[in-house]
Amino acid sequence: MKRALAIIRSSVLSMIGVALVLLVVLSAIFAGVVAPFPDHRGAVVDFTNFNQPPHWPNIMGTDLVGRDLFSRILYAYRTSLVLAVVVLVLAMPTGVIVGLVAGYFDGFRRHALMRLTDVFLSIPPLVLAMSIMGVLEPTLLNGMMAVTVMWWPWYARLVYNITLAEREEGYVLAAEVIGASSLHVMFREILPNCIPAVLTKMALDIGFVILIASSLSFLGLGVQPPTPDLGSMVAEGANYLPDSWWLTVFPGLAILVAVFGFNLLGDALRDILGSDQ
């Protein structure tokens, strides 16, 4: 822990990462307190003040129906973070279990599971999520499912590679020799050695999940209005470039700030956990 703090403090970039992540997480949690117009997260219309460039009190301007862009961006952070956490919480265990089983057992189970993983990995991620969203109704919950389906194979690959190497180690042989069950060996012996790499990947992935989810909603295949979402805000404003530039630039920068922060933090965590996956 002390070493971790020392690494973070010694690097300016890590400090910036921590600051940006705190900023994003806190604005998502306290959106209701910080946002100047909390009710603008829903279907509010104010035609006396629509499509206005940044001015006081709408510091990022207003959208096409007169809602405060800044307030909506704060609430959109909430949507993005909830989505990212749910996706990773679902995708990580799925991938880890598949990877452990495929790596530990030889023969049919390994080949079936890893070929299945390969199939999922050979459809470009966004295209896979898009086709799933095409089948399902575009809602936040279904968006999470679509992103989860494209995400677990990466954890399966990662854990599979580690398990392949670890199962030849002496401690695994020792456990097998004294008669430990395969469940015990997989989950109590090998799994703990996968955890640093898996945690690093999760930290690095938060940013990417936010990025992919915003891409889906940009295409109209994710979160639906009036729920505030950064991707759909950019898509909405794209038709009004360049005159109403604030409609796209601020939500776009909001994505950049959040993902950049999580990536910096992920890089720092990778240094701390000393894994180079």
């Binding site: 991707g231 950019v234 898509a235 530039w245 630039v249």
Partner: peptide, 21 residues
């Protein structure tokens, strides 16, 4: 390193909007 990290930190549609503007 900073430029490279910025590059991977925004979806391509955000870069598209920024470059276009």
């Amino acid at each position: 390193r900073v430029v490279a990290l910025l590059g991977v930190s925004a979806p391509s549609f955000v870069w598209a909007v920024i470059l276009m503007l």
